[in-house]
């Protein structure tokens, strides 16, 4: 009986050990630095803007980065461009329909093609992107920098920071965002540049 309990404990240790060392990073940055830049280059007009209403979390294990998972949530209302009329259009039902679909969500399931170099990890993030109620599997290039103990330097709180960078393009027609319409003024291809910092304060 004693031996059975011991072997059960040993198995549990082996199975759950990787989970135990994963660190949960909160993507709601109190410094307000986190941002996503969106760029659209149509023949008649170039649009560039930012989204700053970012929340969610990333579970990252420095020893096993391929098991990284998490959820990135972007508030549609936080998308802004410098022309207020254009913002009104973006929020409208034909484009992002912010009233019905207030969030853009990316569910991260794991990383593949992982390359490690010091505290930096690069690879392909595999997950599901949901925009305007349409979900698509999306593999995006991503680089992570694990800054152990650096939260103290930034916010005077002991803890770690995970910096996430990515640059990729999506097609608005794939997500039914006024698909096939006004492509001379609003490009179908949207370039996205993610600059995110997740924070993990140490629990005392």
């Amino acid at each position: 009986m004693k031996q059975a309990i011991l072997s059960l404990l040993a198995t549990a240790t082996i199975v759950f050990a990787p989970l135990a060392s994963a660190i949960d990073f909160d993507l709601k940055d109190p410094k307000g630095v986190n941002n996503i830049v969106f760029l659209l280059d149509a023949p008649l007009e170039s649009i560039n803007g930012t989204a700053t209403g970012i929340s969610g979390n990333v579970s990252f294990d420095p020893a096993a980065p391929e098991s990284t998972s998490g959820k990135l949530v972007v508030a549609v209302e936080s998308m802004s461009v410098a022309n207020p009329k254009m913002v009104e259009h973006i929020m409208g039902a034909r484009w992002m329909d912010a009233a019905k679909h207030p969030e853009i969500v990316y569910e991260l399931n794991g990383l593949s093609d992982v390359k490690k170099s010091g505290n930096k990890v690069s690879g392909t993030a595999n997950g599901t992107m949901t925009i305007k109620g349409v979900s698509k599997e999306l593999a995006i290039p991503v680089s992570l920098s694990y800054l152990e103990g650096k939260l103290a330097d930034r916010q005077r709180t002991p803890g770690d920071i995970l910096v996430i960078r990515s640059s990729f393009s999506i097609s608005r027609s794939d997500f039914d965002v006024n698909a096939g319409q006004q492509e001379d003024k609003v490009a179908d291809e949207i370039e996205l540049r993610l600059s995110l910092a997740g924070i993990a304060p140490k629990k005392s």
Partner: peptide, 23 residues
């Protein structure tokens, strides 16, 4: 500007610790 009027412009900044660029 070739586009329509704007009510703000952005200045690029860099966070010292994370080295992330933000506007």
């Amino acid at each position: 500007q070739i586009g329509f009027y704007k009510t703000y412009y952005s200045v690029q900044r860099v966070d010292e610790i994370t080295e992330l660029e933000y506007q």
